[in-house]
């Protein structure tokens, strides 16, 4: 990626580096969807084991940390508010619907990241655009490519 081809609104909306060491997500200095997502994650983090009545463990710290890393990676993008939910087995899911495109990212209990992207054309699933895969934990920045696809950049 080069800055010369990066959309200006992405650069401007990134919070400036500051001297603070403690990691926080500011609700006022972030994109609106980041604030919404942060509040949802805060609520989900309080879930206990058997939160679904089916014996599922509470979301693990590794899954929550992965979710935080994913959001930090893309917090400068102007996205619609995602749907965030716990998933069975101690993981978390985050999903966006943008026009005819859908992006679903799952943070598994061990912190690993899986995704599924899909698109409909004329109301029908477009098989050519459907893709799933795994993002290694040391390459979280690849989530940006998925978001760019979602935004059709």
């Amino acid at each position: 990626m080069t800055y010369g081809t990066q959309p200006q609104n992405e650069i401007r909306s990134k919070p400036l580096p500051c001297t603070q060491w403690s990691e926080v997500t500011s609700f006022w200095r972030s994109q609106p969807w980041v604030a919404d997502a942060s509040r949802t994650i805060s609520r989900i983090s309080t879930l206990q084991d058997d939160w679904d009545g089916q014996g599922s463990p509470a979301p693990t710290r590794a899954a929550l940390e992965s979710m935080n890393r994913v959001i930090r990676e893309i917090d400068a993008y102007d996205l619609p508010s995602p749907h965030i939910s716990p998933v069975s087995g101690g993981g978390l899911g985050i999903e966006w619907h943008q026009g005819q495109r859908d992006l679903s990212i799952e943070l598994l209990q061990d912190g690993s990241i899986e995704y599924l992207r899909s698109q409909t054309t004329s109301g029908e699933p477009d098989i050519d655009q459907m893709e799933d895969g795994v993002i290694p934990s040391d390459r979280v920045n690849e989530v940006r490519n998925l978001v760019r696809w979602l935004l059709n950049w």
């Binding site: 403690s22 500011s26 609700f27 509040r39």
Partner: peptide, 14 residues
């Protein structure tokens, strides 16, 4: 300002 503290995912006033 309201922030999410990412060490324990609590919303706090910073």
């Amino acid at each position: 300002e309201p922030v999410l503290r990412t060490t324990d995912y609590k919303e706090v006033l910073q």
